[in-house]
Design a binder for these strands. Structure first.
Lengths: 234, 234
DNA sequence: GGGGATCCACTGTTGGATCCAG
DNA sequence: CTGGATCCAACAGTGGATCCCC
């Protein structure tokens, strides 16, 4: 056999992919990123700097996770979702993307079978410095694994059932981001003019603006506060 | 009002789009291309040279047709499909792409409502020099409008009904390009490893190699022979 | 000679998020 | 301070066909 050169990406030799890794090993790897700057990690793993979502992609690469392969959790064998969390002085600055909300998909789901539930069942949170700091200089914080407790789960479920019901009936256009305690519905597209085709309850084809589920800032803030005891932490 | 600079593509000022054009006017435009070389047309209309499908795209631009907008015919208002035909000394060299053949779509179609029928109902054929000539030096031939006669239609229908039946039952994988008199089924993908998801008759999800409908070379050869009386013509 | 494989550009969708006006 | 808007890259799909080995 011979080894093809094109598949030997710079980082591939250094990082073993984690599909078969244990939860503890993943957490250990994530812990090793604490204190590192994003530009260091870009350089180490051949990732490009960029705006917005590049941070998440860079950290996934740094953990050795293959991109874009799986539907559902980032780590198919493990059921763990990886999420960055922009934090400044212990304060979460932004809401967190969970997944898209399309009528046809939601009409076929229940909370128990939902993508939102399976994604949030176990999350590796990766705090990252945010705010007025230049993107390249931002440092990674202390990663932690989280699962919703009974109360979290009840809140998420209630929000999801309410929102999913409306979206599945193609009524999402009428829902503002004010709805929902922990989970909210927000636009998700290149710009406000984007429309996708969907079918309403009655089977008519309609054009809708794509929406997605987000976790409210206050919800993830509470998670951080519980883990770090409210102490300032970047 | 003001005019945005970015929408003023080089060719836009010179070529009026043909959505509202009559059939006669379209044919006149196409006739004006006869004898022109592809590199001339690329230069005139800001099209890039390239391989395979670039010829078709270039000629559509030269006719003022918007790309990729419509499902069905190239000219929504007119119901005319534009096809190039690679010809050398009166001989058609290649089969002609018609459209993709996917189980879900075909299961919902009859011959009367099929995309294949509507695309072939009226075609503007654009003969283009082919063979050992360098792509840039190839010249456009004499365009002509065509519709299937009763015999053509019967043959196409019989082939389509046979092939569409098999494909709609997710049995296309077992069909070779040898099947069909005028219409045949061939692979259509970046390479032989590509698979798409589909549902079989019984509702199971299966992975299939994408296939498409093609007109056999002999079928288009017969069309050319009828139009040009068998005389050599490029 | 033709059946199976492949090529290219463009566009739409998805998964990753942050930006910013009011 | 947050709801609505937007940013980016990668990937899949589509529409246009020709390449090339058996």
């Amino acid at each position: 056999v011979h080894v093809s050169v094109k598949s030997a990406a710079p980082h591939a030799a250094a990082i073993q992919h984690v599909a078969l890794l244990s939860e503890a090993a993943l957490l250990a790897r994530a812990g090793a990123l604490a204190g590192r700057r994003l530009d260091e990690l870009c350089a180490l793993h051949g990732a490009r700097a960029g705006k917005k979502g590049r941070v998440g992609v860079t950290l996934e690469r740094a953990l050795g996770v293959e991109q874009g392969s799986a539907r559902g959790a980032d780590l198919p064998g493990l059921g763990i979702e990886i999420k960055t969390l922009p934090v400044a002085h212990g304060r979460v600055l932004e809401s967190t993307w969970v997944g898209s909300a399309t009528p046809s998909t939601l009409a076929a789901e229940t909370w128990a079978t939902s993508l939102v539930r399976s994604k949030l069942a176990r999350v590796l949170w990766l705090p990252v410095e945010a705010g007025p700091i230049a993107a390249s200089e931002r440092r990674v914080g202390t990663a932690f694994l989280w699962s919703p407790d009974a109360q979290d789960e009840a809140t998420l479920r209630a929000d999801w059932e309410d929102l999913a019901d409306l979206v599945s009936r193609a009524l999402g256009f009428a829902v503002s981001a004010r709805r929902g305690t922990a989970l909210q519905l927000r636009p998700k597209a290149r710009d406000a003019s984007v429309r996708v085709r969907a079918s309403s309850e009655s089977g008519e084809r309609v054009q809708i603006a794509p929406q997605g589920f987000y976790l409210r800032r206050t919800f993830t803030q509470a998670i951080v506060d519980r883990v770090f005891g409210g102490s300032a932490r970047s």
